[in-house]
Design a protein around this nucleic acid. Structure first.
Length: 468
DNA sequence: CATCACCTTAAGACA
DNA sequence: TGTCTTCCAGGTGATG
């Protein structure tokens, strides 16, 4: 501690901070359970009404309330949130504040989290479990990609029905995925409060949304194994990686780190390994059986935002990084202690995503330098840069171009509250709907259902586009 | 060179 | 309707 004399003001401020810290510490655990039940009900009750009329909600409180109570009660143990809380009480100097909350490595539970204690919603764990089980039992795995159906997708037939504008969770959605099931449409989404929501789209009833808090800060990645639907992983800036275990009715702890975990991926042919990025540029390959890292490489100079494995040649991995590059690696060949670098894509600014196309023969990158890079042809040598406004600021999740159901087009959210569709030739069209009242920043396509696309917002909503 | 303060931005809550 | 808070982006410009 510096030995500076404290002014009256400063002393008071410190008291407040201390008080807050104590309050948070004491509430940390129990408040979670408390939140769960209280917030839960509200959320659930509204859900239906909210679902149908996203514009207004007269008497009933929307789930958003939950967000508020969460923070007000000091649930979040992490420093950044604590800072915000203190700021509310004492406006002026945030300067010293940043130093005050000792970077506590989060108060996350370092162990499995039961459905019971993680459930933030009103929905029954039993129904959730049954739904998942039902999906596991009835999903068949044929060819994963509907390749070759080129041109079968008619954008004009894609619609956003009003009932498919749904508020599934309180916070900004940072990630979403479809379960790769031809039997059922189920979406998993993660938000900035560490919540994971499962939306069972086909359950048209009042229920169908299951909300769990697995983490303490923003979810940074979700991965579902393409052929093993029970392998649902989540990772978070809080340094944890968790795995859904339906049979044990819990979210297991796979790994905990002092560093942030930024992205996560799996190999199509191997359900016993995962890989995730950690801190500034580190990539870990994790052996699930051994319960430890089997490889760890520094691949970038800054955070790795996405990791993607080539579906055709699973030795190829592509990473995108804040260091303004995206790289393709050959995992078979180790070169100077790390995988051989086959290709570097240079952008002028941070690269927020890099994804292989469904056939694996193309690559798409998205950067805040306002370009979407498209690479095709032999060794991805045919390159084109398509201008696209990717400037989101920090309130909206960065935009990421994802591939549709074949190699012909990319989908990416637009600041104009539209979903832009970029053809591989570089032409841009867009999906528009007056029901998209917010920016659809993160997207996901249903692997088995052509024309079914989900877009998420900073307000916890999902727009589900379908083919009419 | 590394760290820090500050600003931008959209969206919901609230007055 | 206007105002206020958000907050792990990222650039810029100042400071140590």
């Amino acid at each position: 501690m510096a030995s500076q004399p404290l002014t009256e003001y400063e002393r008071k401020r410190l008291e407040n901070i201390k008080r807050n810290a104590e309050m948070m510490a004491s509430l940390k655990l129990q408040s979670k359970a408390l939140e769960l039940s209280s917030a839960t009900k509200r959320d659930r009750i509204e859900k239906k009404g909210y679902k149908i009329t996203p514009d207004k909600k007269p008497k009933s409180e929307t789930p958003v309330i939950m967000r508020r109570s969460l923070r007000t009660r000091g649930l979040p143990p992490d420093p950044s949130t604590a800072k915000g809380l203190v700021d509310n009480i004492l406006p002026p100097p945030l300067k010293t504040l940043s130093t005050l909350p000792p970077k506590s490595p989060t108060a996350a539970k370092l162990g499995p989290l039961s459905f019971q204690e993680a459930n933030m919603g009103d929905s029954s764990n039993r129904i959730f479990i049954d739904s998942i089980m039902d999906m596991l039992d009835n999903t068949s795995f044929g060819k994963r990609h509907l390749v070759g159906s080129g041109g079968s997708l008619d954008l004009d037939s894609m619609v956003l029905k009003q009932e498919n504008v749904v508020s599934v969770m309180p916070g900004k959605i940072s990630n979403l995925r479809f379960f790769p099931s031809d039997y059922r449409s189920m979406i998993v989404a993660g938000d900035k409060f560490g919540n994971i929501a499962f939306w069972d789209v086909d359950s048209k009833g009042s229920d169908g949304i299951y909300l769990y808090q697995l983490h303490t800060t923003s979810i940074s990645g979700i991965s579902i194994h393409p052929f093993n639907l029970s392998k649902v992983f989540s990772c978070c800036y809080d340094g944890l990686v968790r795995l859904l275990d339906v049979e044990k009715e819990s979210f297991d702890l796979v790994h905990s780190s002092d560093n942030t975990i930024v992205s996560l991926s799996q190999w199509p042919q191997d359900a016993n390994s995962i890989c995730f990025s950690e801190g500034r540029g580190v990539l870990n390959v994790w052996d699930m059986r051994a319960g430890k890292s089997s490889s760890s490489w520094v691949l970038h100079d800054d955070r790795i935002n996405t990791i993607d494995i080539n579906p055709e040649n699973t030795n190829l991995m592509v990473t995108s990084s804040t260091d303004a590059s995206a790289c393709i690696w050959d995992l078979r060949q180790i070169d100077a202690g790390r995988p051989k670098n086959l290709m570097v894509v240079n952008h002028k600014k941070s690269v927020h995503s890099a994804y292989f196309s469904p056939t694996g023969s193309c690559l798409a990158t998205t950067s805040t330098d306002n370009n979407v890079g498209i690479f095709s042809g032999a060794d991805f040598m045919d390159k084109s840069m398509v201008y696209h406004n990717n400037h989101t600021g920090w309130l909206i999740s960065s935009l990421r171009a994802i591939w549709g159901w074949d190699d012909s087009s990319l989908f990416i959210g637009s600041m104009k509250r539209e979903v832009d569709v970029i053809s591989i030739e570089g032409n841009t069209r867009s999906l528009q709907s007056s029901d998209m009242s917010a920016i659809p920043c993160r997207l996901a396509v249903h692997p088995q259902k052509v024309g079914t696309l989900a877009a998420s917002t900073s307000g916890g909503q999902i727009y589900l586009w379908t083919q009419s």
